[in-house]
Design a protein around this nucleic acid. Structure first.
Lengths: 224, 224
DNA sequence: GACGTTTTAGACAATGGCGTCTAATTTTAC
DNA sequence: GTAAAATTAGACGCCATTGTCTAAAACGTC
């Protein structure tokens, strides 16, 4: 190894991280065994100890890895905000669908939620970082978006932060159980959930003006 | 033992269940040790094996015990619904405060949430029962309440089930992080969160009629 | 006070996981 | 091709935990 190391290592590393994420997620930190991780990664136990000093080191590395992926995904999502106020309902709906699919209900989202619940108190620094870069970034960005839209007159909002948190909460309202048990909703469920969420959000915060926010005022909602 | 057994046992049983709940919640099933539970319960290890055949038996008993308490609490809450439409905002707010304090953010709520996340896949029957008797009962009851209120003309709702889920989701929107990390919000936070939730809910579903739903249309919201 | 039950402390074997070590083998770099 | 580095399988010591067992103590009831 003459300096820039990585290559054969890299494949093994990724294999280990992936397998460890799976096993930690299913068994928890205490329940996960290094041997099981090694087997799942098709790697010898010693190789794991070669890369990570001990079980805890591996665990922290796994969490950081998943967090990085999740953060990158969130960041790429936040750059696709709807910025003009035409088609606001459809744009927001599409955003919620993608947010739920790519950040909340996906593999990494499930992993982080489980881990925060299970080991959050044991690694406060790790999960404080998650909070800031995940939910924190999301609500901050949403808050800014809503401020822009309110400035344009497309929304009527008194507290942008509250509205942002409520937006996220509404986006998950119909998926709570699926999400809690780790399932992935179907495309249809994602679509329905997002539509219900945005419809209610706009009923509460949409401009009351030209009666355009909700096209069919009294039609039955797509039920969950 | 002359027939109806229980008495000295009962105290020990409760002590064991309480301690086990604490330890299981903090360490997870795999991480919890019988000795630690015994020590926390001020009981010898053999006594535990005397009441519960093995670790898993104890675990199931603990979950069922907590679920029963939580269900009883929820049931008592559901009987205190606001039923008349005057003071709807205040009544709903008070309900959300109590719901969050007594069912969502309290000890048992935290325990069940953690356990559902951690071990839900390993005990599907147990947690299906939780889902039905907990969140299921809650949204059903809320749905019925909203139907009554809509019938009276106090609310305008197209899909009662969706509205019920959204109501719960909004009630937690401002507390997500506190709840996730197992903390108990202060009274002030509970009050603010509930008020924000109900205000938004009524903006979306309140009768638009005599401009009474939101007393100060454009005043700043109590921010979270 | 006597008897049956429950509890207790501790010893005990069995299991399984962690982390180390070694010697052989494979991969990589040059 | 050769040397350095990485990987592997497996054995090993160590420790924690589970669940059993036993003999003594505490308890409750009559």
């Amino acid at each position: 190894m003459t300096g820039h190391t990585q290559r054969g290592q890299c494949a093994k590393r990724l294999s280990i991280l992936e397998a460890a994420a799976e096993v930690f997620c299913n068994q928890g930190f205490a329940g996960a065994s290094i041997d099981e991780i090694a087997a799942a990664a098709c790697v010898s136990r010693q190789t794991i100890y070669n890369h990570y000093r001990e079980k805890e080191t591996l665990f922290v590395a796994v969490v950081e890895d998943v967090m990085n992926r999740a953060n990158a995904m969130l960041f790429s999502m936040l750059s696709t905000f709807p910025d003009n106020a035409d088609n606001l309902e459809d744009d927001l709906t599409a955003f919620v669908v993608r947010l739920n699919r790519n950040c909340i209900c996906n593999h990494d989202g499930k992993f982080l939620r489980k881990l925060v619940q299970m080991e959050g108190e044991r690694y406060p620094h790790l999960f404080e970082s998650w909070r800031q870069h995940g939910p924190g970034k999301l609500t901050t960005a949403l808050s800014a978006l809503f401020a822009r839209l309110a400035h344009k007159g497309a929304l009527v909002i008194d507290d942008f932060d509250v509205a942002a948190r409520q937006f996220v909460a509404l986006g998950n309202a119909d998926l709570q159980m699926t999400v809690l048990f780790g399932g992935m909703p179907t495309d249809g469920e994602l679509e329905k959930a997002a539509r219900n969420a945005v419809r209610t959000f706009l009923k509460a915060y949409g401009r009351p003006g030209p009666e355009k926010a909700s096209p069919q005022p009294q039609l039955a909602t797509v039920s969950g």
